Amino acid sequence: RELEAFAERFKQRRIKLGVTQADVGSALANLKIPGVGSLSQSTICRFESLTLSHNNMIALKPILQAWLEEAEGAQREKMNKP
């Protein structure tokens, strides 16, 4: 249940930020998480549509959570600048 809720929230917030699935995939490489490079657009799509295996969903959740927090933080900074 929690994974499904996160996937839905992730998709809504990604769209609100105006970021494509492909952008998310390539931006993950910038997070410098050990062992994590970029991901394909189709992987992000399959995460959002819950068609990845349960284990893959569990593995990707903290990575996508980290990206989302960073992206939303950058958005807030941009909006707070005069």
Rank of each mutant, 00 (worst) to 15 (best):
K16I: 07
Q41D: 14
A5I: 15
A71P: 02
K11Q: 07
L64R: 01
E48T: 00
W67Q: 01
G37W: 03
N56C: 15
Q21I: 13
N80V: 15
L64G: 01
P82K: 09
Q21R: 09
F6T: 02
G35M: 05
V19K: 12
E4T: 10
G25V: 15
R14H: 00
N56Q: 15
I44V: 13
P62C: 03
E70H: 08
V24M: 04
L31P: 04
E72W: 03
A27Y: 10
K78A: 15
A5S: 12
R1D: 12
R76L: 13
K16A: 15
E69M: 10
K81E: 15
L64N: 03
R13Y: 05
L17D: 00
A5C: 06
R76G: 12
R1I: 14
N55H: 09
T20E: 07
G37T: 08
H54A: 13
R46C: 07
G37C: 09
A5D: 09
Q12F: 06
G25N: 07
H54R: 14
E4A: 08
S40T: 13
R14G: 00
Q41P: 15
R76Q: 12
M79F: 13
G35F: 15
V19Y: 10
A59C: 09
L39F: 05
N56I: 09
Q65P: 00
A27C: 13
F47Y: 04
A5L: 14
L28Y: 02
L68E: 01
E48M: 00
G37D: 08
L31N: 06
L39N: 04
A27G: 06
R14P: 00
N55T: 14
D23Y: 07
A71H: 06
N80K: 12
A59E: 10
E2S: 06
S49Q: 14
E2C: 04
L3A: 06
M79H: 09
G73A: 13
I63V: 12
V19C: 07
K11Y: 01
A27N: 08
D23A: 11
G25R: 07
L17I: 07
L60G: 01
P62T: 05
E77D: 12
S49F: 01
F6W: 06
E4V: 11
L3H: 05
E70K: 12
L17R: 01
L68A: 02
K32A: 12
A7E: 00
Q41G: 12
R46L: 05
E70W: 04
S53V: 03
N56A: 14
S40C: 11
V24R: 01
E72T: 04
S38E: 13
S53Q: 11
K61V: 07
L52H: 04
L68H: 03
T51A: 11
L50N: 10
R13S: 13
S26M: 09
S38C: 05
A7G: 02
K32Q: 11
I15R: 10
A7F: 01
E8A: 11
G18W: 15
A59F: 12
K32M: 13
G73D: 07
H54L: 14
A74C: 13
S49G: 12
G18F: 01
I15W: 04
E4D: 10
S38D: 06
E48R: 00
E48C: 00
A66C: 09
L52V: 02
W67S: 01
M57Q: 05
V19W: 11
E4Y: 06
L68M: 07
E8H: 06
L52K: 00
F47Q: 00
E48I: 00
S53W: 02
S38M: 15
M57F: 04
L31Y: 14
A5W: 05
S26I: 05
L31I: 10
L17M: 08
G37V: 07
K78F: 12
E70S: 12
R9G: 11
E70D: 11
L28K: 02
S53R: 06
F6V: 03
S42G: 10
Q75G: 09
A29C: 15
L17P: 00
W67L: 02
R14V: 00
L17S: 02
L60N: 05
E77H: 08
M57R: 01
F47V: 01
Q12G: 05
T51M: 12
L52F: 04
R76Y: 07
A66P: 02
V36G: 06
N56H: 12
R14N: 00
K16H: 10
S26C: 10
K81W: 13
K78P: 09
R14F: 00
E4M: 14
Q75I: 09
M79S: 10
T43Q: 07
H54Y: 14
A71D: 02
P82R: 06
A29R: 15
A74G: 09
R76T: 12
G18C: 02
V19A: 13
A27S: 11
G73Q: 14
F10A: 01
P34W: 03
A7M: 03
Q75H: 14
L64S: 01
S49A: 12
K78L: 11
A66W: 05
L50E: 04
G35I: 15
W67C: 00
D23R: 05
A59P: 03
R13V: 08
R1A: 06
V19M: 15
I33K: 05
S53M: 03
K11C: 03
H54E: 14
E77G: 10
L68V: 08
A22S: 09
N56L: 14
C45Y: 10
N30T: 09
P82L: 07
M79N: 13
A59I: 11
K81T: 13
A27F: 04
K78D: 06
R1M: 12
A29K: 13
K32R: 09
P62F: 02
E70I: 06
D23Q: 13
R1G: 09
K11L: 03
T43Y: 04
R1E: 12
P62Q: 03
E72R: 03
R46H: 05
V19H: 06
I33C: 12
G18A: 04
K16C: 12
N30L: 08
S40L: 04
A59H: 15
Q41H: 15
E72H: 02
E72N: 03
G18S: 04
I58M: 10
G37H: 09
D23H: 06
L52C: 03
L60H: 03
L52Y: 01
E70M: 07
G25S: 12
F10Q: 00
N56W: 09
F47G: 00
N80Q: 15
L68C: 04
D23W: 03
L28M: 08
S38L: 07
K78Y: 07
M57S: 04
H54S: 14
G73I: 15
A27E: 10
Q41Y: 05
G73W: 05
G35E: 09
Q75N: 09
T51C: 07
Q21A: 09
V36L: 12
T43A: 09
V36H: 02
S40K: 08
M79P: 13
E69R: 07
S42N: 13
G73L: 14
R13H: 07
F6H: 02
K81L: 14
H54V: 14
A29V: 15
A71Y: 03
S42T: 13
L39I: 14
V24Q: 01
R76D: 11
Q21M: 07
P34T: 11
A5F: 14
V36A: 09
V24C: 03
N55K: 10
E48D: 00
M79D: 11
L28F: 07
L28D: 01
K61R: 09
T51R: 11
S53F: 00
K61G: 04
M57C: 04
G73V: 15
L28G: 02
S38G: 05
S40W: 03
L17G: 01
L68G: 01
L64T: 01
M79I: 12
N30R: 08
E8F: 05
R9S: 14
T51G: 11
I58E: 11
L31R: 12
K11E: 02
A71L: 05
N80T: 12
V36T: 15
Q41C: 10
T43C: 07
N55I: 07
I58V: 10
A27H: 08
Q41V: 09
R13D: 04
W67E: 01
E2K: 08
K61C: 11
V19N: 01
S40F: 04
A71T: 15
E77P: 08
R46Y: 04
N30V: 04
E48Q: 00
S26E: 15
S49W: 02
L3I: 11
H54C: 08
T20R: 08
A7V: 12
H54I: 15
R13I: 08
S49D: 13
G25E: 14
R13A: 10
T43H: 15
L3Y: 07
K32C: 07
A66E: 13
G18T: 00
A5V: 09
E2L: 03
P34K: 08
I58P: 01
Q21D: 05
